[in-house]
Design a protein around this nucleic acid. Structure first.
Lengths: 350, 350
DNA sequence: CTGAAAGCGCTTACAG
DNA sequence: CTGAAAGCGCTTACAG
């Protein structure tokens, strides 16, 4: 008794063909819904497949056809809801098109990312969607995946210069415009001392968001104090821990544009700990609009990127590329929308 | 110019063999690190593989060897951090053992789950890890996957009775003991009117948690008022919306054991909206210990299940099963730990 | 409308 | 230590 697992013998096309007294080719045609097969034969074959519990072996078919029905998806941080939603969107859109997602998670480690890519590429996916670990070098990625499958990079640029001929598509958020919009709104609300809080300054998204922040301040004629840009790891925990850095500045800020929602939520806790009242005497904005943003205390003003939709978009871009490898590579930058909630009060009289 | 994608011709073992003047078999032995191959030959072959950018085709190898190096992972709700962490843990442990994760997400839809399972099974995974959508029927699952791959079900039982011979392993949390521990603790803190809040009463995990809650009340000699068990969808939003149901009861409760953290966080918001102060004049407990639990306002007393560790555990259980299909099926129930935080104050004098 | 044969990229006995 | 041959489960011309 093997507990219901028929490890020993798998049912193949041959078994069905033999049982029906037809050739393998005929069974194959039935599977592929070819109109060439006589209706009676088709019915007999289909009944037999059901009876024997036949399961199509797509790997074998793909090998013969020299095609692939898988796409590799490598995610830097599944525990961040932004990326988890993105992954769900990718999987959803791929499923609709008959593709299966090969998942890999790098946990923000470039070494693990290399390893994961190397392992996934051996399954010869039709393409790769990579949400890169921080500081992923383009040469590293090329070494891991070669040039066999089209690559779509999400969210963060790869560092370094690609070797000639190594190309990839990019899907990202309009970080600069988003941060600029948030900062402008704070200015409209009367804030004049506004900090940029959190994120690693050397990550491409943080750099871009800082630029947007500076754009808005510049346009308002407010000089930029480099000390008002505070670096933290982009996590709730770190953002919480470093909140006091905001008040080490001579004239303390009344508002902070945060690198992302995780940082903003962490900062709000830190502010509360320090006796401040975010949403009352201090304004905070985030980035991403993760589900918790709307439900925080106070609800967080943030920039919506709809990660699930971005996932679907990434899947579609990649499949388009796989179908037309010679077309020019694209860099798609998605606008983000300012969603105002209670975390951004008017500036108070000092 | 094809943009660096060599869609046309893939490098195979044959190309390497020809270039080195050896047979395919020899190259294959080099790949598999056989000591039979002369060191010089090995070096020549390895150099040639690097030069031509050879990528091993694991699907072809698996086909020939009649083995599988993939595992299917089907998740009901990736946007819930509990399941996202679980998925990350599964992927991590599988990666270590050289397996690749085939991802599928059902978004809590049994229909989509059927479809996803049907598609994944065609890739002949070595096994399937299923975190089922609510109300997944065991017969449905069997229909989709047959009996070809071992199945590990996580977190929720399947509904219905399995057909004779259809068996699966189960990994779940000790829901009953967990809810009992939380309720007991509230009793120790002096609470006497305690509600059970949230969740769908017909889900196995909710049923079990309600039983644990009733166990504790029963042991304390407190009669159970069925109206003190309030049903909501297990989401933050719904939990928030129905908070007032707690105060429709004659003698309003001073504490609520919540179905899970999402519900508890939602309820705390709802309480605040109603002018209550969770953590001060009302006690709330959760279940899961998602990252937000510790960072909520107030931080949430909850039951820790360490979903990432559960993911690793699920992967290991499944691979054990795949190696020993005939062993008796197992049902592993993991204890959960009460983690006390500020959301559970002593009962106040009414 | 159906069948015999070749082949996808690999591995595995079996010779030598 | 290396090669020729067969075969994993499928599909695809090509006959008939």
């Amino acid at each position: 008794m093997d507990g219901g697992l028929e490890k020993s013998r798998r049912i193949t096309l041959n078994d069905i063909a033999r049982a029906c007294g037809v050739s393998r080719a005929t069974v194959s045609l039935v599977l592929r819904r070819s109109p060439l097969v006589h209706a009676d034969t088709r019915r007999r074959v289909e009944a037999e497949m059901l009876r024997q519990g036949y399961v199509y072996n797509r790997a074998a078919a793909n090998l013969r056809q020299r095609v692939s029905t898988t796409v590799a998806l490598v995610i830097n941080d599944l525990s961040n809801p932004f990326f988890a939603e993105f992954a769900a969107g990718v999987d959803e859109a791929l499923g609709v098109k008959g593709y299966v997602t090969l998942l890999g998670s790098s946990n923000e480690s470039p070494a693990r990312q290399r390893q994961v890519l190397g392992s996934l590429i051996e399954h010869h996916p039709a393409g790769i969607i990579l949400s890169p670990a921080e500081n992923s070098d383009v040469a590293d990625v090329e070494l891991a995946i070669g040039r066999h499958a089209p690559l779509l990079v999400f969210n963060r640029k790869l560092t370094g210069t690609p070797a000639p001929g190594f190309e990839y598509d990019f899907l990202g958020l309009d970080n600069r415009a988003g941060a600029r919009a948030a900062t402008k709104r704070l200015l409209e609300l009367g804030h004049r001392r506004i900090a940029f809080y959190g994120g690693h300054a050397d990550s491409s998204s943080c750099r871009e968001r800082r630029l947007g922040y500076q754009d808005a301040l510049g346009e308002a004629g407010i000089p930029i104090d480099p000390r008002s840009m505070i670096e933290t790891a982009p996590t709730r925990l770190e953002a919480n821990a470093h909140a006091d850095a905001l008040f080490a500045i001579d004239a303390a800020p009344t508002a902070a544009v945060c690198y992302n929602d995780a940082v903003a939520l962490g900062l709000m806790l830190g502010l509360t700990r320090l006796g401040r009242h975010p949403g009352v005497d201090f304004a905070v904005t985030g980035f991403d609009d993760i589900p918790e943003a709307a439900l925080g205390v106070p609800p967080l003003t943030t920039l919506s990127a709809d990660p699930r939709a971005r996932g679907r978009q990434a899947a579609e871009l990649l499949l388009q590329r796989a179908a037309a490898p010679s077309l020019l590579r694209r860099s798609v930058v998605v606008p983000v929308l300012l969603t105002e909630r209670e975390s951004t009060p008017h500036a108070l009289r000092a």
